[in-house]
Design a protein around this nucleic acid. Structure first.
Length: 421
DNA sequence: AGCACA
């Protein structure tokens, strides 16, 4: 037996190390090489608001400090992993976490606030990654600024996305605007599924679509130019087509330079952006007739004078309450000489732009009609029961999903696929 | 795999 003396300092140090005092700063070690702040955010953010991260230090650049805003947030992370069967991991590698023996990270400008301010972490409630496409996320978040990168991943039962903006100002604006809100989505879009990790680089966004690259001032009002208007496009047709993406508040139609234009007002920019994404370049009627070209209007609130066949305010209660147009024949070419086939052929869109391909066989002959699906059966009657192809997923938190709270203890499985709020 | 910040 060998007994030696240990100084009280060393003893304290040992005890300290084995059982350090709680701190809102956590020390993480055994991180993968060149671990990014994003990876640490992904790991730690579910437990609270991260105030600062210092990573890539230590001899092997494999350690980090993460400071939470509140002590109890650090405690919740520690106790979560203390009782979890799964250790904390980054890139599959077990990470060892302890309370730091410092109470705060001192070397940063505290007035500057949060770290990595230009990246938001978005947690979506009741969704799986197969439910939402990166394109939808992209269009929703592009409404506020240029989106440089999007990474999506599954965290437990939660679907999360990291979204990088140009700067923290835009990111915080987005956070304020979208936190707790629902994003519109379309289950039937064939291009929704995105499995596992997916990253869109800002430089290659054009591969995703024509939208989003240009930094035009977004608006809740869309300006639609109807090209090649061989057939009648009534205000009801416009209303039907655009209602597939959200509540249409007002429509004003006007002619300019021998072309028909329509201003379509939605409640918010996101809805407008979504409609724009899905409708841009589509034809109202099959055969390339009445092609829509959409841009954001400079207006944000339309003035509708009275009620006419050229302008309408759907927010005025008595005017048009889900008013089914008496004879809604807009889908049939109105010109006598119209090629009948145009109304019978299947839509001939670029498949990548199809909105609801499944129903196009159900309701043949209607270009945008099939895309608004069962809401508008071939009879022309309105069905309010199966109203929408668009659904909403709630963004439950930007910068913070707390497992203890509404947590990943998913309601997702109980959600009927294809319809929920 | 074990505590930085000049």
């Amino acid at each position: 037996m060998q007994i030696s003396e240990m100084s009280t300092e060393v003893a304290e140090q040992r005890l300290f190390r084995n059982n350090p005092m709680a701190s809102k700063v956590l020390h993480l070690r055994n991180l993968p090489w060149l671990c990014t702040e994003e990876e640490l955010v992904e790991l730690c953010n579910p437990f609270g608001e991260i105030v600062f991260i210092k990573c890539n230090f230590g001899a092997n650049r494999n350690q980090a400090f993460v400071e939470f805003a509140e002590l109890n947030q650090a405690i919740s992370m520690m106790s979560y992993y203390a009782s979890s069967s799964e250790p904390a991991k980054v890139r599959g590698q077990t990470v060892y976490i302890q309370y730091s023996n410092q109470q705060e990270i001192v070397n940063y400008n505290k007035s500057a606030g949060a770290i990595a301010g230009n990246v938001l972490i978005v947690t979506m409630e009741g969704v799986q990654c197969s439910d939402i496409s990166i394109e939808v996320i992209h269009v929703v978040f592009s409404a506020y600024g240029y989106v440089h990168k999007i990474a999506t991943f599954e965290k437990g039962a939660c679907f999360q996305a990291l979204i990088q903006f140009s700067n923290s100002d835009i990111a915080s604006e987005v956070k304020t605007a979208l936190n707790g809100r629902c994003i519109p989505r379309d289950y039937t879009n064939p291009h929704l599924p995105v499995k596992g990790h997916s990253v869109i680089e800002g430089t290659s966004q054009s591969a995703v679509g024509p939208y989003g690259n240009k930094r035009v001032p977004e608006s809740n009002v869309l300006l639609a130019f109807i090209k090649d208007m061989e057939y009648a496009v009534t205000i009801d047709v416009i209303h039907t087509v655009f209602s597939a993406y959200g509540t249409v508040l007002k429509i004003v139609m006007f002619e300019k330079n021998n072309g028909m234009h329509a201003l379509v007002q939605y409640p918010d920019v996101i809805t407008a952006a979504t409609a724009k994404m899905y409708l841009e370049g589509h034809c109202i009627y099959d055969g390339g007739y009445c092609k829509l070209h959409l841009s954001y209007s400079r207006h944000t609130n339309l003035t509708v004078m009275g009620d006419s066949d050229k302008s309408r305010d759907y927010t005025i209660p008595e005017t048009r309450v889900v008013a089914a147009p008496p004879a809604f024949t807009g889908w049939q070419p109105s010109a006598p000489a119209a090629p009948v086939s145009a109304a019978v052929q299947m839509p001939s869109y670029d498949p990548s732009r199809l909105i609801i391909p499944a129903s196009s066989s159900t309701y043949p002959g209607q270009s945008l009609m099939p895309h608004s699906g069962p809401a508008y059966p071939a009879t022309g009657a309105y069905s309010s029961t199966s109203a929408a192809s668009l659904h909403a997923s709630r963004l439950i938190s930007l910068y913070g999903m707390h497992p203890g709270a509404s947590g990943p203890s998913g309601s997702s499985s109980s959600q009927p696929h294809g319809y929920y709020q």
